[in-house]
Write a protein that binds this DNA or RNA. Structure first.
Lengths: 342, 342
DNA sequence: TTGAAAGCGCTAACAT
DNA sequence: ATGTTAGCGCTTTCAA
């Protein structure tokens, strides 16, 4: 039992290795490797014998060992905020499709919008030697990624830019989209327009706020402090913000909501009220058509696809300088944004 | 250049190894290993020197090599149908949280409801030696998994049962939920009730249909063939099915929809019609509260959490026999299910 | 066409 | 407290 003493816990539940297959088929180790990898130079008869041994033993190649020799894992990592968010599901799915087309697997992780957790996750993925990384950043300093990128981990940032480093980036036109949405409300006669957005440390939140200010400025409207609220997307926070703007002697007559989670809460608040209030939301939402919600739509799947394509282009080849892609948004008028001021 | 000739393509972009760190710090390899893994038996001074070398070199432990020795990858695989489906996002997220609590990463893959693709994905995950597997099956024969499970890959099936093998399974009470939903419609006076569900090869689809038939039988209602339609969840197909049931001399007065995707299309069809038709849908939907859609709700996050907990329990320990868990559903009345017959 | 030997980067076992 | 050696399962190289 010397063997057993050295390996008290059998690895992988004692899986057969190529060596075992070789012994059983009565061939050399390398011949098994050739068969498993469909390399040429094996007679049909030998191949058959090896195949039989593989099936009899239930052999499956250990990719960990393979990776160790080959250097590429054929896997990429995707770090986003929350897979349960309806915006990220389609994005992740699009990344997966591109990865699949390139023969790669996708390792997913959620940062929960926590910079530390993002870093922890990213570094764990690097330790697994993912070939590339797609990151929807929660952090605003990504210098921790520099050694990894130098070591060859292709990295693309999506939805928000990288902090303190140069890297490929795929963004939506948050500024332009918000400006268009707010201008739409202004065009329908509103002047007292509220903005409820995500936390100010999130790039898209401030960009959208900037778009709001731009549209207001272009219309010559002075924005009052009480019309703007940035913070967590927690329903209670959003509800309180909306109700504050809708109360008092001079309530807002329209709201612009900064993302899908804010929008759903705002819609619920407005549903409870009698006085009609106009609303345009950033991000489309399922069934928004039936509820008549006017939105600035961004294509999450396109963002994911674009990012993944950039990633594989970089993996496959040349070292062009970091590119920055900005995807357009689209205003979809469905009624809520066309309500006139009370 | 002999070295270069042997390694024409530098692995991992030439990352430093423990050996490099050891050389730079002037210590032995094992000492570096000790520091990296926070093992005891290193003087503070030595540790500092090693840490410095690690940072100077940008060293990151190669987990592929580690896995090869240790036998566990600290990763699990999740194979589902489509990450972009709002039902699976929360499920995946819940699995990830449990995995994270156990220090494991999650590798995600979508089968696109294709049995071959499911198998391909599952076996690729096994080749990477994931410690465990959570599968929402598209296939109905999982004997291909037997060698893997024997070799120690813990496997849990969710949402639908495994085919032809014994395995841990976490299901929702599709039969009971559908029966309750249909009984609810009957209690509100309906007798001509249509059922539109997913493809009949999907277990949940037939279970829900069975629930429909049970409720109808219990009420002594003879079901007409034209009231039942199973098939793809493609909007065109669902729309056609719904419109057929709502037309003719004796249209149905109520519909039961078999899952979230069917429901959204049915809701759109009903929105275009004048005559009110009652509706109960299986699965909850975002904003269903505002649209007043009565649903049979199942907790996707709970399903994911339960499955992952089973998985890790099995990984951590004893070999109890395969368990089958059935999670309850909950009827949420919001209006659409309480509309009386026309 | 086939196989033996070396070694990928790490950890376990065993010195010192 | 620290280092040396063997070997995880595979691919690469080179020889037969």
């Amino acid at each position: 039992m010397a063997e057993t003493a050295r390996h008290p816990e059998p690895r992988y539940g004692n899986r057969p290795t190529m060596k075992d297959v070789a012994a059983r088929a009565g061939v050399g180790l390398k011949t098994v490797s050739r068969v498993v990898n469909s390399e040429p130079g094996v007679t049909p008869d030998t191949e058959r014998r090896v195949q039989e041994a593989i099936e009899a033993l239930g052999f499956r190649r250990n990719d960990s060992a393979r990776v160790l020799r080959k250097g590429r894992t054929a896997s990429i990592g995707l770090v986003l905020e929350d897979l349960a968010d309806p915006f990220y599901g389609p994005l992740s799915r699009a990344v997966e499709e591109v990865a699949r087309a390139h023969g790669a697997l996708l390792i997913n992780g959620s940062s929960a919008e926590d910079p530390e957790r993002e870093q922890e996750l990213v570094l764990a993925l690097c330790a697994r030697r993912v070939d590339g990384l797609i990151v929807i950043p929660a952090a605003d300093d990504h210098r921790y990624l520099e050694p990894e990128m130098r070591a060859g981990v292709a990295t693309v940032f999506v939805d928000r830019p990288a902090g303190q480093i140069q890297a490929d980036t795929v963004l939506s036109d948050s500024f332009g989209g918000a400006r268009e949405g707010v201008a739409h409300l202004i065009a329908h006669g509103h002047r007292r327009i509220g903005f409820i957005g995500d936390q100010p440390r999130i790039h898209t939140a401030t960009e959208r706020l900037r778009g709001y200010h731009a549209a207001m400025a272009e219309a010559g409207i002075a924005v009052e402090d009480s019309w703007v609220s940035l913070g967590s997307t927690d329903p209670d926070r959003v509800r309180a913000a909306a109700e504050a703007m809708l109360s008092g002697p001079e309530p807002v007559t329209a709201l612009f909501s900064g993302n899908n989670r804010v929008t759903v809460t705002v819609v619920r608040v407005l549903a409870d009220r009698e006085r009609p209030v106009a609303l345009v939301g950033f991000d489309d939402i399922e069934l928004a058509d039936l509820l008549g919600i006017t939105v600035i739509s961004q294509d999450a799947a396109a963002a994911g696809r674009t990012a993944a394509e950039h990633l594989f282009r970089r993996l496959d080849g040349a070292g062009h300088p970091p590119a920055r892609v900005e995807l357009p948004t689209r205003l979809i008028a469905r009624g809520s944004g066309e309500i006139p001021p009370a």
